[in-house]
Every structure is written in structure tokens, then in C-alpha cells.
């Protein structure tokens, strides 16, 4: 039986539903013609609800980022279904998918490389609107400035280039760009990992505010369980390409079932105890 949240029996329809999703990469050994498949993840089921955060945790190489890229349709999965508001995204043609892309956006780990170094702050935020051919140039600029203010960036920095911003400000810029198309789902792929602790807290607060004001559903990918405990409503634990445990956050932290979940939690506890000993 597949692990899954036991509390969603009578819940409303999910915004995003992933069913039986699998991805294999074809690889070839050096100086060899024989190809073999490497499985990134298998048979993954997930559901994201409006205004809620589902955290996906696991060790490095567990397949979290590959799964995120497949859900965002940056890569094509080998099998399974991805339904967004009831529409099967994998069955859509290119034109229909183009329109659906606006509803799901992704935020990457490293804000420095997630921004086009040659574009100004305003151009970066307006870029998705231009790609989706939305509004006039002036309207796009107005919307970009509005979004800058919304994520806590001064609108008078509109002409600044990415390298002129700090790490935290760049991540705000990335968030503003992701919000430009008014998406329903945000996939946050280790979005806070490259930030220092104060910036992590500030961005976390911002994301929480935006979730309430825009009714966003978050898929939050992380290996930092202390951040997950503060931010997520549900947690899915990934181990060797499979979801091995999926529970409400409090339940998972209180009573982990799978040995890998216990290992992950033990790491957090040991780090916490070391820090407490040091401060004492």
C-alpha cells in the first residue's frame, strides 16, 4: 500500500494532483554504446491544495529536484499524470500548455543564477508577461513596479541589474517574477538554502503573507527540516526516488514511521543539541 496522508478523506479537490509519476534518465557508460536507465523517481503521488504548503524532503539525490522539474514540465516524465485544476497537463498540446504554464511557476535555489544577468530588475519581472504576451510595455512595467513593492523591493531600483542586489533581494526579485503571471502553484526548489538565517526568516514571512493574499499552493522542496517544520502544512519524505511517508507536519515530527524519516529527524535533533550545548 502506498504511503499517503490519512487525513484527506473528505477534503476539497486539489489544485494540483500528481499520480503515478515516474522518470528515468537514459545513460551511457564512457566508451560504451550500451545504454541503461537510471530511475530518478518512481510512482509518485502528490496533491497540492489552495493556500497550503506541501514540503518534499529527503537527502541529496533522492529525486526531489527531478520531480520538481517534471511537475513544472521543464522535463517530460516517462509515465503518470499531472492534473492542474482538473486538466491533464501531459495530454495538452503545445498551445494549450503554453496557456497553462502561467498557473504554475518555479523558484530556484540560487537566486544569482536564476536571474538573467543582462536584464534590469523591472525587465526581469516583466519578462514572463512579455513571454505570455500580456499587456502593453507600459502596463507590464507598471505591474513589475507594483510587484517590486509587494515583495519589499523599492520601485526606484527598477533599473538596477541583478548583481547590484544582495542575495535576499535577488530572491525577492525571483519571487516577484514568479508572481507576475498570477500563478496558483509555486514550486520552491530549495528556495531558501542559499540565504543566511535572517534572510531565510524574512523570505519565509514574505512567502507566508503571499500565500494568504494570493491563495497560493506551495510545493516546498528542502532538506532543512527545521524550516519545513515552521512552514509546511504537510510533509512528504522521499527516499531513493519514492515517497516513503506523507503526513501532516505535526504528525510526522511527533511520530515518524519510516526509518529514513527518523534518520532525517535525528540529524536535526543532533544539530539542535550541539547548538544548545555550545550556547550553554
Amino acid at each position: 500500500m502506498k504511503p499517503g496522508p490519512k487525513f484527506d478523506a473528505n477534503r476539497i479537490e486539489p489544485l494540483l494532483r500528481v499520480t503515478g509519476l515516474s522518470k528515468q534518465y537514459v545513460q551511457r557508460r564512457t566508451f560504451s554504446r550500451t545504454e541503461f536507465d537510471v530511475s530518478a523517481f518512481q510512482d509518485v503521488d502528490l496533491a497540492l491544495f489552495r493556500g497550503k504548503t506541501l514540503a518534499l524532503v529527503g537527502e541529496s539525490g533522492a529525486g526531489k529536484s527531478s520531480l520538481a522539474r517534471c511537475i513544472a514540465l521543464l522535463e517530460r516524465p516517462n509515465s503518470g499524470r499531472i492534473e492542474l485544476e482538473g486538466a491533464d497537463l501531459l495530454a495538452l498540446d503545445r498551445k494549450a500548455l503554453f496557456l497553462f504554464r502561467r498557473r504554475m511557476q518555479m523558484i530556484f535555489q540560487d537566486p544569482a543564477s536564476a536571474l538573467n544577468p543582462g536584464l534590469s530588475a523591472c525587465e526581469i519581472i516583466a519578462e514572463p508577461l512579455a513571454i505570455q504576451r500580456e499587456g502593453t510595455k507600459l502596463q507590464r512595467r507598471e505591474r513589475a513596479l507594483q510587484l517590486m513593492e509587494q515583495v519589499g523591493l523599492d520601485a526606484k531600483w527598477e533599473r538596477k541589474l541583478p548583481f547590484e542586489f544582495s542575495g535576499g533581494q535577488r530572491q525577492r526579485l525571483v519571487i516577484a517574477r514568479a508572481l507576475a503571471l498570477k500563478p496558483n502553484v509555486l514550486i520552491l526548489d530549495e528556495a531558501l538554502s542559499n540565504l543566511d538565517a535572517p534572510n531565510q526568516s524574512l523570505i519565509l514571512e514574505l512567502l507566508a503573507e503571499l500565500q494568504v493574499s494570493h491563495s497560493l499552493a506551495y510545493l516546498y522542496i528542502s532538506h532543512d527540516l527545521s524550516l519545513v517544520s515552521r512552514f509546511a502544512d504537510e510533509v512528504a519524505v522521499m527516499y531513493q526516488g519514492k515517497i516513503v511517508e506523507h503526513k501532516e507536519t505535526r504528525g510526522l515530527f511527533a511520530a515518524p514511521e519510516h526509518f529514513h524519516t527518523r534518520e532525517l529527524l535525528a540529524t536535526v535533533h543532533s544539530v539542535e543539541s550541539i547548538l544548545m550545548e555550545r550556547s550553554a
Partner: peptide, 26 residues
Amino acid sequence: EAPFIRAARAHGIAERRVLFRYALPV
């Protein structure tokens, strides 16, 4: 392979535009 190119693709940009407008200038 840079994330900003992936972000542009996630917005639904055409591949030709990715190459000439985004990747080549960088």
C-alpha cells in the same frame, strides 16, 4: 543549463527565442 533559462522555459518561451534572446547574449 542556467536556472534563469529554465525559468524562461517555465514561462513558456519558444526555444528559438531562448537561444537567441537569452542564451547567446549571456
